[in-house]
Simulated assay, not measured.
Amino acid sequence: MEIWPAIDLRGGKCVRLKQGDYARETVFSDEPATMARQWVSRGAQFLHLVDLDAARGAPIPENRQAIADILHAVDVPCQLGGGVRDDAAIDDLFGLGLSRLIVGSAALKQPDWFARMCDRYPKRLAAGIDARDGMVATDGWLETSQRSAVDLAKDLRSKTENIAAIIYTDIAKDGMLSGPNLEALAEMRAATDIPVIASGGVTTVEDVRQLTAQNTYACIIGRALYDGCLDLPAALAAVTEVLQASGGDSSNA
């Protein structure tokens, strides 16, 4: 299982929100590139970036510069979510050197367009499915749709074979340090053969062990790393431990 430390960007700074609430923000660093180097120095082989301002429809130069600085500072694959809504944004962001982009609201609202873009960039676009009580949330988590997360995943899979992954976030868990929603993740994995990346609530080494044991493709870890609840090397070691005990492949650990 891959572990992706999260770097959420707002106003050019590295921040974390609780349950996607922009009024409940904690600033962890004024220099996101320095934070990126820190995670890589502690063993991170991947980084998960989020442009929170773009997710709300207001891209700002400070975040774009922070993204470019991170890509220049580290030599690991970086994926980005937030505000990826049209062809121009996708072309532009891939031009920066990002390895993967996450499409959220637009995948729900324009599934045929998303499928075409997946075919244009095979295995490089992931669907960010953020759920509140099992229903898809959109527009920076400000709105909740009438579409279930599982139904959206099935629909997207029926339209293209080239979707890279589903980043599944349970908003109730995000930033709350209360553990992931294992049942919802299991339901999502059972519904589709698309690799599922767990996001939200991963807090302890035991959470990492459980996700690994359940054959989760990857997990994104945010606040727990920043608050010191979870040590990144310990999390990586837990993945290796579980995979070796089960006779699995620990090459991503």
Rank of each mutant, 00 (worst) to 15 (best):
R209D: 00
D231M: 03
V208W: 01
P233Q: 05
C229S: 13
D231H: 08
D207T: 13
A191Q: 04
I194H: 07
T204R: 05
G201L: 08
L211R: 07
T204Q: 04
L230Y: 01
L211H: 08
Y217H: 15
I194D: 00
V208K: 05
D193E: 14
G200N: 10
A198D: 01
G201S: 10
A224C: 10
D193Q: 13
G228N: 07
G222D: 02
A198Q: 08
Q214L: 14
L225Q: 10
Y226L: 14
T212R: 02
P233A: 09
C229L: 13
G200I: 11
I221K: 10
L211G: 06
R223T: 14
T216D: 02
T192W: 02
T203D: 06
G201F: 03
I221E: 03
V208A: 03
I220S: 03
D231V: 08
A190L: 11
V205P: 01
I221N: 04
I194F: 05
A190H: 12
L211W: 06
I194M: 04
A234I: 10
V208N: 03
I220T: 07
I221Y: 01
D231Q: 11
R209F: 09
A190K: 15
Q210G: 04
S199D: 13
T204I: 10
D207C: 08
R223G: 01
V208T: 04
A198T: 08
V196I: 15
P195T: 12
Q210V: 14
D207W: 08
R209V: 11
Q214H: 12
R223M: 09
I194N: 09
C229W: 09
C229T: 08
A234Q: 15
V196T: 12
R223Q: 12
Y226E: 05
A190D: 14
T212V: 03
A198R: 09
T212D: 01
